[in-house]
């Protein structure tokens, strides 16, 4: 019984010593407490889970202040930026990230729209330029054919007015 007790005590002491050593190592790994700037660098990439369109680093609510303190504690615990962001996503949903998780979907639509627009414009240029090339080739010039220059736009009223003025001359 006493032998068993001693054995148990030895094991307990060993575990305690290991824990103490691990604890010391952890504390030394933590270094100084995270600064406000380190906290804000991560908070800036997150949005307040309750307010609309407010980044977490500048949100003035008490809840957000506490979430910033949570980031500080997690940093002090040695958590990485990715782990902290993942924690917030797990607890509050993907809306806390300042970018959609599926980046492809978010960029694909505008890029595709731009490419389609550029293609249509290119095709348009090809279509518009063709007949003129023939004209200019015939004329041997490169300028705007006189016949295509739009006259100073005037409507019927002005045309009538000018006609009358001419008659009165």
């Amino acid at each position: 019984m006493s032998k068993n007790f001693l054995h148990k005590a030895q094991n307990t002491l060993l575990i305690a010593a290991l824990l103490a050593l691990f604890g010391t190592l952890t504390v030394s790994a933590q270094g100084p407490a995270p600064t406000d700037d380190e906290v804000n660098a991560i908070a800036k990439q997150l949005f307040c889970p309750v307010c609309e369109s407010t980044p977490l680093d500048v949100c003035p609510t008490e809840a957000c202040r506490q979430w910033r303190e949570l980031i500080r504690e997690m940093l002090a615990d040695g958590k990485s930026e990715a782990e902290i962001k993942q924690y917030f996503v797990e607890h509050f949903g993907a809306q806390v990230l300042n970018e959609p998780p599926n980046k492809f979907a978010s960029y694909a639509v505008p890029v595709a729209a731009f490419l389609i627009g550029a293609f249509l414009l290119f095709r348009g240029f090809q279509m518009w330029l063709k007949p003129v090339k023939a004209d200019t080739a015939l004329e041997g010039g490169s300028g705007l054919p006189e016949s295509e220059a739009k006259p100073i736009p005037q409507d019927d009223y002005i045309a009538r007015l000018e006609e009358e003025v001419k008659k009165q001359k």
């Binding site: 949005f47 970018e99 959609p100």
Partner: peptide
């Protein structure tokens, strides 16, 4: 059903 945020990084890059 997933709520997401499209924030400044997207707009700035695009």
């Amino acid at each position: 059903g997933q709520k997401i945020t499209v924030g400044p990084p997207f707009y700035e890059r695009a």
